Amino acid sequence: MRPTFLFAFTSAALLLTGACQRGVAVNTPTDPPVAGYVNGTDTPNPTSANTTDLTRNRATAFDTTARPQWLETRIQNHLAEKKQNPPVHIYRYRYNDQVVYFETAPCCDQFSTVYDAKGKVLCHPDGGITGRGDGQCADFTKNRTAEMLVWQDPR
């Protein structure tokens, strides 16, 4: 049994060594075509500049139409505080045939909040120790419609 294993190991080593010694030329996409054309159509070479920006676009379009004054005040209060992780988001929805504003919780087991159009707290649909909110609007996630991002902390 031992000679078979040794033979298999030696054979594999010889095959790998032989394959590595062959002069294999690799052409990368940055190499220009030999004739200047690829199948009759000129294909531009990739640039060395990074064309992919993986950072978020900080100029996110928010819905600023008809923001109530109380909401502008809340936004200014958030900006005056230390940046939260994750950042606070405020969305506008239709819920139970009215316009409502949903403010995400800044962290962990804190309640998110749903406000009516006048700024009165309606409920806390999620968060807290159980993650289910205060139970006053358990159907909020299911029945909300017309989502519109109103604001998110840009910092």
Rank of each mutant, 00 (worst) to 15 (best):
E147Y: 06
T65K: 14
G127W: 00
P44A: 08
R58H: 07
H78F: 14
A59M: 01
V121S: 08
Q110C: 04
Q136F: 01
Y101V: 04
F7Q: 05
Q110M: 02
I90A: 10
F102I: 04
V121C: 03
Q21S: 12
T52V: 15
C20S: 15
T28C: 06
T141L: 11
R67Y: 01
Y93R: 12
N77E: 12
Y37V: 11
D63K: 02
R67K: 12
T55L: 06
K118T: 15
L79W: 00
Y93Q: 10
Q69A: 13
P33T: 12
T145G: 09
D109C: 06
Q21C: 05
A105Q: 00
N57T: 00
V34G: 08
N85A: 09
H89L: 14
R74I: 07
R56N: 13
V150W: 05
G133R: 07
C137S: 07
G40C: 05
D53Y: 05
P106A: 03
G133P: 09
K82R: 13
G36A: 13
L14V: 13
S11L: 15
N77I: 02
R132H: 06
G40S: 07
R94M: 10
V34L: 10
V121A: 06
F111G: 02
E147A: 15
R67Q: 10
I75H: 07
D116V: 06
D153P: 04
L16R: 00
K82F: 01
F140R: 10
T10Y: 01
R144L: 07
V121F: 01
S112P: 08
I90M: 11
D126A: 14
N77C: 01
V88G: 11
P3I: 13
F140Q: 12
C20R: 10
Q69S: 11
V26S: 10
T52E: 12
R2V: 13
A13R: 00
A8E: 08
E72H: 02
A35P: 00
Y115E: 04
K82A: 15
V114K: 07
Q76H: 01
D53H: 09
N85T: 11
T17V: 14
N85K: 05
T113G: 08
A146I: 01
G128A: 03
I75F: 02
A138T: 15
Y37Q: 13
D139T: 13
T4V: 09
E147W: 01
L6D: 08
L54P: 00
M148Y: 01
F9E: 03
R94Y: 07
P33Q: 11
V150H: 00
C107N: 10
L16N: 04
A61I: 05
N27D: 07
K120P: 02
N77A: 15
V38Q: 11
G133T: 03
T52Y: 04
G36D: 06
S48H: 02
C20Q: 12
V24P: 00
Q110F: 02
P87L: 04
T41S: 12
N143V: 00
T52K: 06
A146V: 05
